Simulated scan of single mutants.
Amino acid sequence: MYVWPCAVVLAQYLWAHRRSLRGKRVLEIGAGVSLPGVVAAKCGAEVTLSDSEELPPCLQRCRSSCRANRLPHVPVIGLTWGRVSPQLLALAPVDIILGSDVFFDPKDFEDILTTVYFLLEKNPHAQFWTTYQVRSADWSIEALLCKWKLKTIHMPLHSFSADKEHLASSSLPGRHTIEMMIISLAQ
């Protein structure tokens, strides 16, 4: 099973901040293999994993990751970005929303931020911790962040990794620039 560099970077950030995760309520969106969510759960957070309700294999992958990591108590739910569903409405309060490489396809950017905004409005103290791979200079969420009145803090990767040389390294060909942001409601 391949784990994308963005998931590794977000997991490294969580590990670097592991002492602050105990008891936090965490939701991972677009979880896939769920590495960040699994790390958060292992650090004592109350985690819920989610992926598209329209992609049962993705939800099964989340469940498989939980079983493989001895986390049978971690709930896995179907959430589709941009859709206000009963599962989204029924979510318990959250402190941290995680998303690794969810900004993969520009056609999804608005739906992702719609869902994140909904969650932040419902949980005004919460933050969205996200990592993404820079794929094109034309792919930007800056205008959408302004539209939704969200503020962003860019997190330099070197600030939380002891192994700076291998942080976000990838065996895939080409250049792989990874960025991390913390997004919250603008006050």
Rank of each mutant, 00 (worst) to 15 (best):
I96D: 00
L88R: 00
L27A: 05
P156Y: 02
V116H: 00
T152E: 09
P173E: 10
P72R: 08
K164L: 13
V116Y: 01
M155R: 01
G174N: 08
K164S: 11
G23Y: 07
E110C: 13
T114K: 05
F103D: 02
Q127Y: 09
H176C: 15
S170V: 10
T80W: 03
K42E: 07
S34V: 08
K122R: 12
L21S: 02
G37M: 06
V94R: 02
S50A: 12
T115I: 14
P86Y: 08
S159Y: 04
D111G: 11
C58T: 05
G37Q: 04
I112E: 00
F118R: 01
G99Y: 00
M180Q: 04
A68I: 15
A16G: 11
E28L: 04
D138C: 12
L98Q: 02
E53Q: 12
R70I: 12
H154F: 08
H154W: 11
V8P: 09
S161G: 09
I141H: 00
S136D: 10
G78F: 02
F118V: 08
S136M: 12
G23T: 10
M181F: 10
L79R: 02
S34N: 04
F109N: 05
H73R: 14
R63V: 08
S184L: 00
T130C: 06
M180K: 03
K164G: 15
T177F: 15
R175V: 10
R25D: 08
K151T: 10
I183N: 03
I153S: 05
P56N: 12
S161R: 05
L55C: 14
N69L: 14
W81Y: 05
V47N: 07
E165W: 03
A31S: 15
L14V: 09
A90M: 07
S52G: 11
C6P: 13
C6N: 09
I112D: 01
H176I: 08
G44Q: 03
C58P: 01
E46V: 14
V47P: 05
T115D: 00
E142A: 13
G44Y: 06
H158S: 13
I97N: 01
V74E: 04
D163A: 10
L10G: 07
S184A: 03
P124M: 06
L49K: 03
T177M: 15
P5V: 09
R175I: 09
